[in-house]
Simulated scan of single mutants.
Amino acid sequence: MIAAIIGATGLVGKSLLELLLDSDKYQKIYVLGRSQPRINEHHFGKEKLHYLACELDELHEMNLPEPIDHGFCCLGTTIKQAGSQQAFIEVDKLGVLAFAKLLKRQSHPTLVLQVISALDANPQSSVFYNRVKGEMEQELRLLHLPHVQIFQPSLLIGERADSRTLEQIGQWLFCLTGFLFIGSLKKYKPINGLQVAKVMVDSAQQASKSVSVISNLAMHNQY
């Protein structure tokens, strides 16, 4: 199979790319983005990686070299990193939709597109972050792709290349209070980026519905 991934330098994307390279199910992995991912020179499967340099606003005019079986969207930023609410929207909503439309243009009859959203994503939410994620999910459904899998993690934990102070504080607090996330609170339990990536790889092979939503709790229960 042929895969395409965008957002491969982030917390989940980096782990996901390594899993795809390790998998014997994929013959080629196209990586789209501004920066080329750093892969160990001797990493198994490195020869499968094909980097396509692009900006998000260039996705609408791109064409991929060949049909993609599985598309993985790991785009995600913060308002602080983006610089403004509009810049955040351009990544977490418009960038995701542009990648989805790029894959749609190839008309692959069994395409599987995976997208990382967020816990409590809701287009009607009063919380800006959750509202944008919810709007993205809503518009994604309207594209009517063959198979869409939406992942809704809670706070993502793991080693990041970039510094996110609030998430670092969250990780520290989780180390102290992780035992409290039981029962009805388990759905809010922070989740490791590698764990999300593993669930994504497994789920891509099992797509059956036109749209599936994989909750934070479901991801915890799978690994």
Rank of each mutant, 00 (worst) to 15 (best):
I5H: 03
A8V: 08
V12A: 12
L19C: 07
L20T: 02
D22P: 06
K28L: 07
I29M: 00
L32D: 02
R34S: 13
Q36D: 14
N40G: 06
H43M: 11
K48T: 12
L52H: 10
A53F: 09
C54T: 13
E58Y: 04
E61M: 05
E61H: 07
M62H: 15
P67N: 10
P67R: 08
F72K: 04
G83Q: 13
S84H: 15
A87P: 06
F88W: 00
K93S: 01
V96F: 01
F99I: 05
K101C: 07
L113E: 04
Q114W: 02
I116L: 11
S117C: 11
A121E: 08
N122W: 04
N130P: 02
N130L: 05
E135K: 14
E135I: 09
M136Y: 04
M136V: 07
L143E: 12
G158E: 13
G158M: 13
E159P: 02
A161D: 12
S163Q: 15
E167R: 04
G178Y: 10
P190F: 00
Q195A: 09
A197I: 01
K198T: 10
K198G: 03
K198Y: 06
V201F: 08
S203Y: 02
Q206G: 05
A207L: 09
S208F: 11
K209D: 14
S212Q: 09
L217E: 05
M219G: 02
M219C: 09
H220P: 00
